[in-house]
Simulated scan of single mutants.
Amino acid sequence: MTSISTLTLNPTIDVAYEVGRVFHTRKMRTEAEFYSPGGGGINVARVFVRLGGNARSYYASGGATGPALDGLLDLHQLVRKRIPIQGPTRVSSAVLEQESGKEYRFVPQGPTFSPAEWQACLEQLAHAQGDYLVASGSLPPGVPEDFYARVAEIMAERGIPLVLDSSGAGLSGGLSRGGVFLIKPSIGELRQLVGKDLTDPGAVSEAAMHIVRSGQSRYVAVTLGHEGALLATADGPRFLPAVQVDAKSAVGAGDSFLAAMVFALSCGWTIDDAFRFGVAAGAAAVLNPGHDLAQADEIRRLYPGVPQPS
């Protein structure tokens, strides 16, 4: 059976609410309250397991909210390896305003790590197993910018390809020594990485292809929101349009995309078909409220309608 490990340095307890209308100052009573374990790597593991694979989640957590995250992970029956830290696990909120259909998201920065804490994360990864290691999410304060590059080196020694989904310093630092298997930036994250506006498709393709040609990452999958996604490989760039669905939330679409793409690759699919499967999963994710991520049956239902990339 296919298997991966995931790393989430900065996990969250994701809280989703609905309110009739958002007002300042006034107390607002919420409906449809929902709690779920979150953070990039944890979300990837949730979708990967739904698709039929095995995933072990490595994550750092602490403070009074740490045990609550542990309990949520157990409710989702995820195999987990907690790396204890002193600071409290963050709590993120998504509020859906029923009147407008708009969603408001509040995401804390996360706890500050000591050197001993982030080094303990690296030590735990020396035991990671699986077809891939997916390191996903932001770098918490106190963690060095080249942390994910160090992870890539540890995984190279173990013969495990690194899939990286981060932003800002986490992404640029992770690519600084090359050798990453796959990165999945959003268009905004790619713009931040290269320091350019990338206002036309040709500029996006060229930026992604530069990362491939320079040896920083073998593959680059750029998610473009409602415009679709782009994949850069040594054979050149190719594009897929977004699947047209009735979107309810954008939360978790990128994580669902990545989980499905890695699942397909771990099953031996071609990179193009894995890319198509990822696009189907991104569309499946937005069909659901923000806490739910993509469901396996929806991914497989949408996949046949995704064309070959061009």
Rank of each mutant, 00 (worst) to 15 (best):
R150Y: 15
L198P: 04
E189C: 00
A296M: 06
G52Y: 06
V44L: 08
A234W: 12
D292S: 11
D200S: 01
V163H: 05
A232D: 05
R276F: 12
R218P: 01
L78Q: 14
R29S: 07
R158Q: 15
M155K: 07
A274C: 03
V251R: 06
S92L: 00
Y303A: 07
D165W: 05
I160Q: 10
P115F: 10
R56L: 14
A284R: 10
I42A: 01
C267K: 13
H226K: 15
G101Q: 01
S205Y: 05
A149M: 02
P37F: 14
P111K: 07
G225C: 12
P115R: 07
F277Y: 13
Y303F: 15
A126D: 14
G39A: 03
K81H: 14
V22H: 10
Y219F: 15
I42E: 01
R301V: 07
D255T: 09
V180S: 09
G87T: 04
M261L: 15
T30E: 00
L193D: 01
L125V: 09
L139Y: 08
I42D: 13
G228Y: 13
V107R: 01
G38W: 04
A264D: 05
P161R: 10
F181E: 02
S186C: 10
K196Y: 11
S249A: 12
D197E: 15
S167M: 11
A60P: 05
V222G: 06
E97W: 08
D165R: 03
K27M: 09
A242N: 12
G41Y: 13
